[in-house]
Design a protein around this nucleic acid. Structure first.
Ligand SMILES: [Mn+2]
Ligand SMILES: [Mn+2]
Ligand SMILES: [Zn+2]
Ligand SMILES: [Zn+2]
Lengths: 150, 150
DNA sequence: TGCTATGTAGGAATCATTCCTGTCTAGATA
DNA sequence: TATCTAGACAGGAATGATTCCTACATAGCA
């Protein structure tokens, strides 16, 4: 989803985030992709237009945007942190081979609950569901390989 | 759950894992707790009985046991890796304040599915559900604090 | 009882992320 | 519009969990 600069500014102000060129560029890059990029991916995307931008600014900005609720971190296993500009409730499909992450929007998943009896006294605020498997292109690559994982 | 040394040996051999004192100690410590310890937690637990054990052996062993399917890694956000000796299907409650992780055994959660239409060509092998909230003791600590999270 | 592939200990290396510090600037104020 | 200052930026150093390397030890097999 591509965002107009004004819309970015509106969102930043609504969330009390100071508007700077660096932040707008980082946020635009993140919202403009569905690939759940790493901080370094974003650094590389954004330095094409802003060669002086420091990696530190990318980390700092992602922290600011996350605290403001404009961005979320999506962690897969123990790999490098990946970021998501989509903060509406959704879940993820994760390819165990290539690491691709795709969004799943599904009301049924959003409504998954846990019985009070099983909640062990927790006050549950939210949940997330992760599906693990092989993405379409990794499946194709595996067709003629060993059928061990089907 | 405490495990007899023979049972550990049986499991190792069943999974073609060489039996060593270090591995048995690490695996026993992990299966003996429900706290989802870190590699370093396990290192500290295990060096009480095996002072010569190296941290590297803990990492290496956890890797071996994970590949063998005797252990799983549980990652919470981007914190240090935590390990779980319970490899039966289950899900987790995670305290966003203190980091506590508790098990949830619930068939309904095990059966959560995604429609083919939404699966985007993925061949789904499994899923996990994470609930986030405040654990009982963190809720108590928050009683007299601001009531914002109830 | 030997042989050998594999495991272990200890230390060095890696590298994503955080910390530090000296400018710089967004946005508020007069 | 000029001034002020809390917060942002760049660059570089530090951190720390994890991995890599290597020489010695040993599990399990014949
Ligand atoms: Mn997403
Ligand atoms: Mn568990
Ligand atoms: Zn894939
Ligand atoms: Zn807690």
């Amino acid at each position: 989803m591509t965002l107009h600069p004004q819309e970015i500014e509106v969102r930043f102000r609504r969330h009390a985030v100071r508007v700077t060129r660096q932040r707008a560029a980082i946020y635009a890059a993140l919202v403009g992709t569905s690939s759940h990029p790493t901080a370094d991916d974003l650094y590389r995307m954004v330095t094409r237009q802003h060669p002086a931008m420091s990696r530190n600014t990318v980390y700092y900005t992602l922290g600011v945007l996350r605290k403001a609720g404009l961005v979320q971190e999506v962690n897969v296993g123990h790999e490098v942190a990946r970021f998501d500009g989509n903060v509406t409730m959704h879940h993820h499909l994760i390819c165990v081979q290539c690491g691709r992450i795709e969004d799943v929007m599904d009301q049924e998943l959003d409504q998954v609950k846990i019985s009070n009896r099983r909640a062990k006294g927790f006050h549950v605020l939210g949940h997330r569901v992760e599906f693990h498997g092989y993405c379409e292109s990794c499946r194709e690559g595996r067709r003629d390989a060993s059928p061990s994982h089907g």
